[in-house]
Design a protein around this nucleic acid. Structure first.
Lengths: 331, 331
DNA sequence: GTTGGCACTCGGTAGGATCGAGTGCCAACC
DNA sequence: GGTTGGCACTCGATCCTACCGAGTGCCAAC
């Protein structure tokens, strides 16, 4: 698409702009290592890159800045980037000591990612729908209030508060619990809905409530972890931009959908309008799905300005996603 | 402390400044309702208020802005403020339809508060330490990995992943579970640690691990819910201020401590340096503890700029805290 | 095709004038 | 004696102008 020289000039512009946030002129590029032509030639090439839509000029007598298309080309042309030594060590250390609750671990993973990249990090956890149920229990909280608790194979817990029409005594709850365990154990949570009708009407009443409660899907939002939103404030000059981006990050459901969309499109980077969200026009999103036991169950990602350090972010996200998947597969 | 006229001038300045964010001059005050003196008199009074430390001048020929001391006086002089009709309705509607998981409800409460006030909202949930255990269960996740799950009386769940030295079979876990239930049922979680030694060494091995795991206090951070951080970006001009405030809000442990400190000092408003946190110098925090069954178990609050709408924020926080306590007491 | 040269553009900065909101002070007033 | 109108003064904000310089596009020469 682009000849070798145009490509390397584009790369130099992107790299310089990422670093300085200033429009870059032909002079800087000409004196950059790897470009052995005069600034006049660079100017010609830059003019061509501009008319091809890779670069833009804020105003006539300024340098060039990359367009979304320019960033896109730059990213696509990247060779598989790798993390530097200390970062690799940091990731290794993190996953070596990681333990305990899966939620805690996912939350800590966002912290790891913000630490590595200095951008906002997002981790979408495994949907509970898929995990096998290990144990189900009904616990009475008040005469007509019962808590349904399901322990899933990955250590997550799914619970629902149930309101019963009539009080249920311990014996009823116990036999309902037994029936639910029989139906669900080893199966996904939805199997609870298939629990067979119980002969005892009191027990059946309880089972009916449980069946109904289980089909209302657990909120996706339960499984999103966001960290480092404050880093957005360091990425943008305009407080209004910061506000609108933060507003997006606060809507967990939107965040999940966003990541899912990007992953489904087979991308690992979404730049500006590629995110499909107008408030993220000045942002770029780098994502990587992770797999547990060979199955893609979640996503890790970072959100930063379009002028983000793509090589570093890509490497960090890829490595963390990989490691997280491994860690969850053993756990 | 201040004579009637000074007080009403100070009040007028604070109200005007809260609304406009501009230094307010004597002219505006003189033409304000409730002040029946000329601007010259107002000037004299304002000069006095300044030398008493209630007002400050950004520069010589500008109007006055309130100091922390000025805000403090204003807040202390407030008569118990009340919410307007629509807001009251909103709160009532919210708590009427509130149901389900306690965590979900607390999270939704932060949304209610940001909606009411347009400031960042914080809710600290009841500590799990105090709640009575309703049920305890050990669930095997992997040969040497067991999940300890305790259901608490308020519907919350406390869980710990345990690593056993040796695999434990179902029978061992069942009898350990029984022993734990006997020890803990109806008592706070810490009672688990007092479970008597079991005769069977295999069971006792498991119990030992559980006892050890339970004493490591569950993280306070589990119980903090923050919402509306994006509103901070609307409150400040300087992106750097926004960043530092967001950084604070991201550290859940810091937020809990902050609220706790303020409540412990018996305050319901902490202005600027009263928060004790340098990055919050331009912020004010309005808090209210809430009680469940007569006992103070948590806190709700909003964080905004020092020039926040104190009457509204105080009313919202008070009402929401009250209602939340009631709701949790019945639940 | 590449390069040095050159006229041109235009944002950014600095200096200067002006404006006006607001002040402090003072003399006059009730 | 407290209050008030008047007045000189201050100083940030705004606007204008000049100027600088980084950067451009174009062209003729290599």
């Amino acid at each position: 698409m682009l000849d070798e020289r145009k490509a390397s000039i584009l790369r130099a512009v992107v790299e310089e702009y990422i670093q300085t946030a200033q429009p870059v002129g032909s002079g800087h590029i000409a004196s950059a290592p790897g470009v052995q032509v005069s600034s006049a030639t660079v100017r010609n090439e830059m003019a061509a890159l501009e008319s091809d839509g890779f670069l833009a000029q804020p105003h006539t007598s300024a340098g060039r800045i990359p367009t979304e298309k320019g960033y896109r080309y730059f990213v696509d042309a990247l060779t598989q980037p790798s993390l530097d030594r200390t970062a690799t060590q940091q990731v290794r250390a993190f996953f070596d000591q990681a333990h305990g609750e899966i939620e805690q671990m996912l939350a800590d993973t966002t912290r790891l990612l913000t630490g590595l990249t200095d951008y906002a990090a997002v981790v979408v956890g495994p949907a509970h729908e898929a995990a096998a149920v290990r144990s189900v229990q009904l616990v009475s909280l008040a005469p007509t209030v019962v808590l349904f608790v399901a322990v899933l194979g990955n250590g997550a817990i799914e619970k629902r508060t149930l309101e019963l029409a009539a009080p249920a005594d311990e014996a009823v709850l116990a036999s309902a619990t037994a029936a639910l365990n029989a139906a669900a154990n080893g199966h996904p949570l939805s199997a609870v809905a298939a629990a067979p009708a119980a002969p005892d009407p009191a027990v059946e009443d309880v089972l009916a409530v449980v069946r109904a409660a289980v089909v209302t899907a657990s909120d996706d939002a339960d499984h999103v972890f966001v960290n480092g939103a404050s880093r957005m404030a360091a990425s943008f000059e305009a407080v209004e931009t910061v506000r609108s981006v933060l507003t997006i990050l606060e809507q967990q459901l939107v965040v999940v959908t966003l990541l899912r969309d990007v992953v489904d499109r087979g991308l690992n980077v979404a730049i500006g309008s590629e995110t499909g969200m107008q408030p993220l026009a000045d942002c770029a999103l780098v994502v990587a799905p992770y797999t547990v036991d060979g199955e893609q169950v979640g996503t890790v990602g970072v959100l930063g300005p379009t002028r983000m350090n793509y090589p570093q972010a890509l490497a960090a996200v890829a490595v963390v996603g990989q490691r997280l998947g491994n860690r969850l597969s053993e756990g």
